[in-house]
């Protein structure tokens, strides 16, 4: 159906997008790889040169690295656990016949539109602050000693903040998937006498499985890159208690000006992200055929 002329026109129209994305992907990645084998500190520009795998060995061997990897996995797993389970329950609840469903949706989705620094600072100052945050007030009202959330449980506090930001996303997507489930199917099961928990496990959950996969994969991509929430609340601390891989690379490059080591960390981050990306692409690609 398409003519030769429209084909070449199509190619011309595609090229700006393809070329710009190609440059955006290739140039920095090649440079990152290159820097990762160089001794390159912005503070000592004269001491430069090829150092082989030195940056990798020192980056990976440092105790900060192990801690950062563990923290990254805990952050991603913790937020996923809260948002997926919470999202399923919340979507099921909102999908019930209720008054003012539209308004409930609006309230639930709101945190997703809050820019990360605002979300993090509101939680840090007005909720988790041990002297006059709302949580401290609640503890005091119950006769307990206020708990220093960001000081004594920094990673868990950050997980709570990030989960609050992403719960709406999971809920909204699962709700959309839920609403595409035909009511006949549920009614038929109901008629056959299937109790609520069986309807959930054998009809609703299988129907949601694709949406759950997509939620998990997309969130993982974004969660691996969480930086600002850590930057404005704990700055990676105390010590390295809330330092993730992303934050560690940020610290090496922007704060320590150690380009070589930061680049090595960047390559590690690429590998980590790619493992997730492969699965995500497969899940989305499947849908493209349908």
């Amino acid at each position: 159906m398409s003519t030769q002329a429209s084909r070449s026109a199509a190619r011309v129209m595609l090229s700006p997008a393809v070329i710009s994305l190609l440059i955006w992907m290739i140039v920095p990645l090649v440079l990152t790889l290159w820097f990762s084998f160089q001794r390159y500190n912005l503070l000592y520009p004269d001491r430069a040169g090829f150092v082989g795998f030195y940056n990798y060995t020192t980056f990976v061997a440092s105790p900060d690295f192990i801690q950062a990897i563990i923290n990254t996995l805990l952050l991603v797993a913790g937020v996923l656990l809260i948002t997926v389970i919470g999202g399923i329950l919340l979507a099921l609840l909102i999908d019930q016949p209720i008054w003012g469903q539209g308004y409930v949706r609006i309230l639930v989705i709101a945190p997703f539109f809050i820019m990360p620094p605002v979300a993090a600072l509101v939680w840090k100052n007005m909720f988790m602050n041990p002297t006059n945050g709302l949580f401290a007030e609640a503890f005091k009202a119950l006769g307990l000693t206020p708990f220093d959330f960001l000081g004594d449980a920094p990673l868990i506090s950050i997980i709570i903040i990030v989960a609050w930001q992403w719960l709406p996303f999971a809920t909204l997507i699962l709700l959309t998937a839920l609403q595409s489930l035909s009511s006949e199917e549920i009614e038929a099961a109901e008629m056959d006498g299937a109790p609520a928990h069986k309807r959930f496990w054998f009809i609703i959950l299988p129907h949601l499985s694709r949406a759950i996969t997509v939620v998990i994969l997309i969130q993982t991509i974004f969660l691996l890159g969480v930086l600002v929430e850590i930057l404005v609340t704990t700055n990676g601390g105390p010590g390295t208690a809330s330092t993730t891989l992303t934050f560690l690379v940020y610290k090496q490059s922007i704060l320590n000006s150690d380009v070589g080591k930061a680049a090595a960390g960047g390559v590690v981050a690429v590998i980590l992200a790619n493992i997730v990306a492969v699965f995500l692409m497969r899940a989305i690609g499947k849908n493209l055929d349908a």
């Binding site: 994305l21 955006w24 992907m25 140039v27 920095p28 990645l29 440079l31 990152t32 820097f35 991509i221 691996l224 890159g225 930086l227 891989l245 992303t246 690379v249 940020y250 490059s253 922007i254 380009v259 930061a262 680049a263 960390g265 960047g266 390559v267 981050a269 690429v270 980590l272 992200a273 790619n274 997730v276 990306a277 995500l280 692409m281």
Partner: peptide
């Protein structure tokens, strides 16, 4: 291209 972590290319982008 969307899956590329920002930190991985932060250094080169910053220098560029």
């Amino acid at each position: 291209t969307k899956m590329m972590p920002g930190v991985a290319v932060l250094v080169p982008i910053y220098l560029i």
